[in-house]
Design a protein around this nucleic acid. Structure first.
Length: 308
DNA sequence: CGGTACGCCTGAAGGC
DNA sequence: TGCCTTCAGGCGTACC
């Protein structure tokens, strides 16, 4: 059935946060770097956004009905060679030797990887763009961008300068975030620490799951205002963010739900989550039932006994 | 500035 | 079993 044999399957149903995106990047690197693009098929044009949309932004108004994006969708043109695959926060960029690149956002259900063609020769329904590329002395490979819910998208940029400009509007990458960098960006904010962790302009890469997990690890309540945090707490928080993201990466980017390993067995990371999805269940530290509330428009779970 | 609500979209999961 | 509702989520806009 699938042509994805041998490749580490990352979670497709869970929500891609930084570890999931980094897992995809690492999986793509050996497949695409050094490969020459031989074909580009755009099966759904509206997943391709205009290059001047705001960073991390989805200009819905410019998607469905627009006759054509500002830049031709095939920024990764036939004949170009892929030189690298970058990541910043939750964004990926496939960079070509010409400097042109395609920024990929996975949204909620997005994925990039080998296309599993059906017996009838059809790619999965939600595979919207397919690049066929070939490295010297290797078979042709079809790599697809799929995204059932289409909260994700692709942006075609003309050069690396445009990529850097775009990413400079995001906060520092969460995987290597240092306490001072985080504190300097958020310490005077009157918003809650949870909202700031989710704000990609403050810190790039953290989503709802890892925000709650990092707050639990650092024993900080999600509703605390940034400006009320002590220096020591910023240090704890930055360390907890790095720790949780690295843990997620170690598990192959598994988050929750239908994480499957290449052999089809269930992943184990979901069992390792301390608070996310465990509202009402006992805290792993103090055994008191975990609290749950909407904060920053997100379901938030924490231990009111351990976190202050 | 911040906060709140809503929209986008589909599939999984739960209720009846 | 099958239909119906609810929920999940990143990130934008609109409005207070």
């Amino acid at each position: 059935m699938g042509s994805a044999m041998g490749d580490a399957r990352v979670d497709r149903a869970g929500v891609p946060e930084l570890p999931e995106v980094e897992s995809v990047r690492r999986m793509l690197e050996p497949l695409l770097v050094g490969a020459t693009v031989q074909d580009v098929v755009v099966r759904r044009r509206d997943v391709i956004c205009a290059s001047d949309d705001p960073p991390g932004g989805w200009s819905r108004s410019g998607r469905d009905a627009s006759p054509a994006p500002a830049i031709e969708p095939t920024a990764l043109r036939v004949g170009q060679e892929v030189t690298e695959i970058r990541r910043h926060g939750k964004a990926l960029a496939i960079v070509a030797d010409t400097g042109r690149c395609v920024v990929v956002h996975l949204g909620m259900t997005g994925w990039v990887g080998p296309v599993a063609v059906s017996d009838a020769g059809q790619p999965p329904v939600h595979t919207h763009v397919i690049w066929t590329a070939r490295r010297a002395r290797e078979p042709r490979r079809s790599i697809g961008f799929e995204d059932a819910r289409r909260f994700g998208g692709l942006w075609c940029l003309p050069d690396l300068r445009a990529l850097e400009a775009r990413w400079s509007e995001l906060g520092p990458d969460a995987l290597t975030i240092r306490a001072n960098a985080l504190r300097l960006r958020a310490q005077y904010k009157t918003t809650t620490v949870k909202a700031s962790l989710l704000d990609q302009r403050v810190l790039a890469g953290v989503g709802n799951i890892y925000a709650d997990e990092a707050l639990f690890r650092s024993k900080i309540a999600p509703s605390v205002r940034c400006c009320d945090l002590e220096d020591a707490q910023w240090a704890l928080l930055a360390g907890a963010v790095r720790h949780e993201l690295r843990l997620g990466l170690k598990w192959g980017g598994a988050t929750v739900r239908s994480f499957r390993r290449p052999d089809g067995t269930e992943g184990k990371r979901q069992n390792a989550l301390a608070v996310y999805g465990r509202a009402g269940e006992p805290c792993k530290r103090c055994k008191q039932p975990l609290s749950s509330a909407m904060l920053a428009q997100r379901t938030t779970v924490w231990c009111s006994h351990c976190q202050h």
